[in-house]
Design a protein around this nucleic acid. Structure first.
Length: 288
DNA sequence: GCCCAGGTGAAGC
DNA sequence: GCTTCACATGGG
């Protein structure tokens, strides 16, 4: 038996949120978006005042979805903390209703280990292959393609490097394998949630294939550390273009600027800048 | 063929 | 400390 539930929420832009490079398992369907959250297959649709969720199996407790979508969050409060400069005004306007999700730490960590110098469409492809080959089948509504859970660390720890490379992740395979093994041997990712952000980052940096950028993505997208500020090539481009025109800027300087300029929700601001600069550079009069 | 993509780790100064 | 380079793979 399937289930349908309507959640009352305003200003939630599913399209922007699910295409903004924080999660990689969502596919556009005829109506809405289809994805997997933990052990749940789900289709999401939205209108101006609500999000409608369809599942393939009965659901008693929807907290997994409320938490993932962060439905209780007051977006206006956060937007009001953004600096009142022109770049942020433009980004806020262009990305109206963009939200940060709250993802599973392991899935988020594994996904971003696979993300380095890959385009988002390719990251989606890698993660898709990983789930098909190492995840568990999950019931989906009949008219949709088969769904799979994200593979556990234990399952990936038993895979070979060649099997992982066959998922098109290239030189990232040994990194993912090393990280999966460390977790399978008992490293507890959940305890990072209770740490100060600097300590949690230090823990993440101890995994192979995890540097400052990947660590910050996990801190922000999985643990909700609101000051984590991932700096990738797009954010570098955005900061240079919008805040440091025609000046040389080091990575250190960018992090310092981010920490002092964007306020207590700088991670949120970062996501707005990221989506803004990416969608802007793809507009019809500026094709790349 | 070229350059680039939600980078990291190791080697060289 | 900082800079440079190799590392797979696919899109434009």
């Amino acid at each position: 038996m399937s289930a349908t539930q309507t959640f009352s929420v305003a200003r939630y832009n599913l399209d922007a949120t699910l295409t903004s490079g924080q999660a990689f398992r969502w596919r556009k369907a005829d109506s809405g978006w289809v994805g997997v959250i933990g052990r749940h297959w789900v289709r999401l649709r939205s209108d101006a005042f609500s999000i409608i969720a369809d599942t393939a199996t009965p659901v008693e407790d929807w907290s997994w979805l409320r938490d993932y979508l962060q439905l209780e969050l007051d977006l206006t409060t956060i937007l009001n903390t953004f600096p009142e400069d022109e770049p942020m005004r433009n980004a806020s306007e262009a990305c109206s209703g963009l939200r940060l999700l709250r993802q599973d730490p392991w899935e988020c960590l594994a996904s971003f280990i696979c993300s380095s110098t890959k385009q988002i469409v390719q990251i989606q492809q890698i993660i898709g292959l990983l789930c098909e080959r190492f995840g568990e089948p999950i019931p989906a509504l009949p008219e949709f393609s088969p769904a799979y859970s994200f593979p556990t660390p234990e399952r990936l720890a038993r895979a070979t490097e060649a099997e992982l490379r066959a998922c098109k992740m290239g030189f990232r395979a040994p990194y993912l394998l090393g990280t999966a093994r460390k977790l399978a041997e008992g490293f507890d990712l959940a305890r990072l949630a209770a740490m100060p952000v600097e300590n949690a980052r230090e823990q993440l940096l101890s995994f192979p294939g995890v540097g400052r950028k990947v660590a910050d993505c996990v801190l922000l997208f999985a643990y909700g550390f609101q000051t984590a500020f991932p700096v990738d090539v797009w954010i570098m481009k955005a900061l240079r273009q919008l805040y440091f025109p025609r000046r040389r800027v080091t990575m250190k300087r960018m992090h310092r600027f981010a920490a002092s300029h964007f306020g207590p929700y700088s991670g949120y601001a970062q996501q707005y800048l990221f989506h803004y600069i990416r969608t802007k550079s793809r507009s019809p009069n500026n094709v790349r």
